[in-house]
């Protein structure tokens, strides 16, 4: 794989590409893991007035080091407010104030719906994972949603094993018909590419530096369209972005190595 020759890891590239989707001024609820890293990276670079919320009731944290997840008190450092679920997922999210959700997924479908609950293994057994937590609430209610996951063919599914959190449509029914506000999933960011999710289907928006578009499409076993002129190349991580990830946001490489 050409990525081996890059001076960054595939997951560092994912974090940088996901951060690139955050806009300055976004009010974002983020899930466990890579979404935390991506949102904090955006805030430290091009989106300084973006604000993070954590489902357990934390407003605007500014952690100075890595954490084991959203329940790790290290992640709450520098927070403005400690409230509860009804403040963050209730008044902020259900109340219509949250512009962006960032979620990691085990499986994703062409509408950008995701599975974080369970996977049916080939031997017929069931592998249970984390479940929804606030993921379903975020995907259902945020202004727009960003999905991050590793680019493995088994994760890109025409039909999910379990639809934990809805994307732009479910079973051909649009969000407005389902009673859901917001746009739903706008992008799926992997360690190889950025897929743009629209009401007209999924497009290969950009491939990461060194990636072959044909190989990416082959590793994405559902219908992905390519616009005339082909996909762009995702902007490579800057030195500052890599420095932030390696020295402040994820020095142990728990999420990005």
């Amino acid at each position: 794989m050409t990525q081996a020759s890059q001076p960054w890891t595939p997951l560092e590239m994912l974090a940088v590409a996901a951060a690139g989707q955050v806009r300055d001024g976004d009010l974002a609820v983020v899930g466990l893991g890579l979404p935390q890293v991506a949102a904090l990276l955006a805030q430290r670079t091009h989106a300084p007035t973006s604000e993070l919320l954590l489902e357990l009731g934390v407003f605007d944290p500014h952690p100075t080091g890595p954490s084991m997840g959203i329940a790790d008190p290290r992640m709450w450092e520098g927070a403005a407010v400690f409230g509860g679920v009804l403040d963050v997922l209730g008044s902020m999210l259900h109340g219509g104030r949250v512009s962006l959700g960032i979620l990691s997924a085990v499986q994703v479908d062409p509408d950008g719906s995701i599975n974080t609950t369970q996977v049916h293994l080939e031997d017929g057994s069931l592998r249970r994972i984390n479940g929804s937590g606030g993921g379903n609430d975020i995907a259902s209610l945020a202004g727009r949603t960003l999905v991050v996951l590793r680019h493995e063919p088994r994760r890109f599914r025409a039909c999910l094993d379990f639809l934990t959190s809805p994307g732009r449509a479910v079973g051909g029914r649009r969000r407005s018909e389902l009673g859901l506000p917001g746009e739903g999933t706008v992008a799926v960011v992997s360690d190889r590419a950025v897929l743009e999710v629209t009401d007209e289907g999924t497009f290969l928006h950009s491939v990461h530096p060194g990636e072959d578009p044909e190989a990416v499409l082959e590793a994405t076993p559902y219908a992905v369209q390519v616009r005339p002129g082909g996909p762009e190349v995702t902007s490579a991580p800057t030195e500052e972005e890599l420095r932030l990830i390696r020295t402040e946001l994820d020095p142990q490489g728990w999420y990005t190595r």
């Binding site: 679920v85 209730g90 379903n136 639809l163 809805p166 009673g179």
Partner: peptide, 30 residues
């Protein structure tokens, strides 16, 4: 459930409300 949906059910329990509405979970396998 989802985190918000179950928290709302508990809030309804605490308030003695007969039921509570939400827009979470629409369209999902949950």
């Amino acid at each position: 459930y989802s985190t918000l949906a179950l928290t709302l059910r508990l809030a309804a329990g605490s308030l003695g409300l007969p039921f509570v509405p939400t827009r979470s979970m629409l369209g999902s396998s949950l």
